[in-house]
C-alpha cells in the first residue's frame, strides 16, 4: 500500500535501462535494490525520487499517483553515494538546509530550525560536531550527516544510493549495523541500492534482485539466497559452483554418472548450481562428482578446497570442516547436499 511502481520503463538513447518494473514497498520496510552495475537499480531509485522521469509507468505513493510531482513535492529523503554535503556550510547548516529554504510562510523561526538541526544531529549521534565543516569529518560521520540532512524535511520515504560504497571495509560493516538499527528506530520506509549481496542480505527486510533493467526476484534474504528463481539470482547472491548436467528419469547426470539430485521434472540439458558449503565428501561408490583436489586453503572455521573435475574448465570450490580435510592431489567424490537445477538455456550472462 505504501509505495507502488507500475510498469516503469526508461531508456537512455538506444539503451533500455528499465523494462516494465513492477514493485511494491511495504510501510516501514527496508528494501534493497541489488544488482550488478548497469542493472538499472540506481535509475530506478532516481525515478522513485523524482530525479529522473520514467518513459512509461506510474509511481504511486499511498495509492496516489506521484509520477508528475517534482522531487521537492514528493517529500523524499535522498542520500547520495558521495553524500553531496555542501562543503562551504557547517554540518549544522547542512542539516538545516531543507528547512531554511522553505517559503517564508512555512519556514520555522531561526531558533526552531537550529533546534531541529541539533535534534537531528543528536539522533545520528553527532551532536557535538555541528560547527565543523564536512571536510573535517570521517567518511562514516559524513554519511550520518547526509542522513540527518535528508530527515530534516520529514520525508515520507528514505532513499539511499550505495550508502556504504564510499567507505572502507571496516567502517562499512559498522555502519551497516548502525543504519539497520537506525532504520528500526526511525521507522521510515527505506530503499537502498547496492551491488554488494552481503550488504543486501544483512541489512534489508526484502531484496530486489535486478539484472539488465529487469527484476529477477523479490524476496526476503533467505528466500533469494536459499530459493533463487534462476541461475542469475543464484550466482549473484552468493558464491556458487556450476556443473553442466543432463536430466533424465527424474535424476540429473554428469557425463553419464547419475547424481543424487532430483531433476524436479526437468528434462534435457541443465545447469546444476550449488554453494561451496552445500556439499559433503562421499565414498568412492557414492553418487557424486569425481574430482581431484588442486588446492586447499584454511579459512575461519572451515577449509576451502579447489577441486578439478575432468571435463570442466573451472575448478569447483567447496567448503569442508577442517578435520579430515583432503590434501592436494587426493581424489574425492563431491556430493551436493543442496543444489538447484536450472535449464541450461536460461543461464544469464552476468
Amino acid at each position: 500500500m505504501s509505495l507502488k511502481l507500475a510498469n516503469i520503463a526508461k531508456r537512455f538513447g538506444a539503451f533500455t535501462a528499465l523494462h516494465d518494473i513492477n514493485l511494491r514497498a511495504r510501510p516501514g520496510e527496508f528494501l534493497a535494490l541489488l544488482g550488478p552495475s548497469g542493472s538499472g537499480k540506481t535509475t530506478l531509485l532516481r525515478i522513485i525520487a523524482g530525479l529522473e522521469a520514467p518513459e512509461r509507468g506510474t509511481v504511486y505513493y499511498e495509492g496516489e499517483d506521484i509520477t508528475q510531482l517534482s522531487v521537492a513535492e514528493r517529500r523524499i529523503g535522498f542520500v547520495f553515494q558521495q553524500y553531496a554535503l555542501f562543503k562551504h556550510m557547517t554540518v549544522a547548516e547542512n542539516v538545516a538546509f531543507g528547512l531554511s529554504v522553505r517559503r517564508r510562510r512555512e519556514r520555522p523561526s531561526r531558533r526552531a530550525i537550529k533546534a531541529r538541526a541539533q535534534e537531528l544531529l543528536e539522533l545520528v549521534q553527532l551532536g557535538e560536531l555541528g560547527k565543523r565543516l564536512p571536510a573535517q569529518l570521517s567518511g562514516g560521520q559524513r554519511q550520518r550527516v547526509a542522513l540527518a540532512r535528508a530527515l530534516a524535511v520529514d520525508p515520507k520515504l528514505l532513499l539511499l544510493d550505495e550508502p556504504f560504497g564510499a567507505l572502507d571495509a571496516k567502517v562499512r560493516k559498522e555502519l551497516r549495523h548502525w543504519v539497520r538499527e537506525f532504520h528500526d528506530r526511525v521507522g521510515l520506509t527505506s530503499i537502498f541500492v547496492t551491488h554488494d549481496q552481503e550488504e543486501a542480505l544483512e541489512v534489508a527486510d526484502r531484496v530486489v534482485v535486478m539484472s539488465n533493467g529487469a527484476i529477477e526476484q523479490v524476496g526476503t534474504p533467505s528466500e533469494v539466497y536459499d530459493n533463487p528463481v534462476n541461475a542469475f539470482v543464484f550466482d549473484f547472491v552468493g558464491e556458487s559452483n556450476c556443473v553442466p548436467v543432463v536430466a533424465a528419469d527424474g535424476h540429473a547426470a554428469f557425463r553419464g554418472r547419475t547424481l543424487d539430485v532430483d531433476a524436479f521434472g526437468l528434462r534435457g540439458a541443465g545447469a546444476l548450481y550449488f554453494r561451496p558449503h552445500n556439499v559433503r565428501l562421499g565414498a568412492s561408490g557414492d553418487l557424486g562428482l569425481p574430482a581431484t583436489v588442486s588446492a586447499v586453503r584454511r579459512r575461519e572455521g572451515r577449509v576451502r578446497a579447489e577441486a578439478e573435475i575432468a571435463g570442466l574448465a573451472e575448478p569447483i570450490e567447496i567448503d569442508l570442516p577442517p578435520d579430515g580435510a583432503p590434501s592436494p592431489g587426493q581424489a574425492i567424490t563431491i556430493v551436493p547436499t543442496h543444489a538447484h537445477l536450472f535449464p541450461a538455456t536460461v543461464a544469464h550472462a552476468s
Partner: peptide, 25 residues
Amino acid sequence: RDDEEAAISLGANGWQTFRKVTLPN
C-alpha cells in the same frame, strides 16, 4: 550534479540552489 540534486531534493528552488550551492562551490 549531486550537490544541486541534493539541494533540490531538500526543497530548494532553482534560484536558491544556484545562490546557496552552485555559486559558493
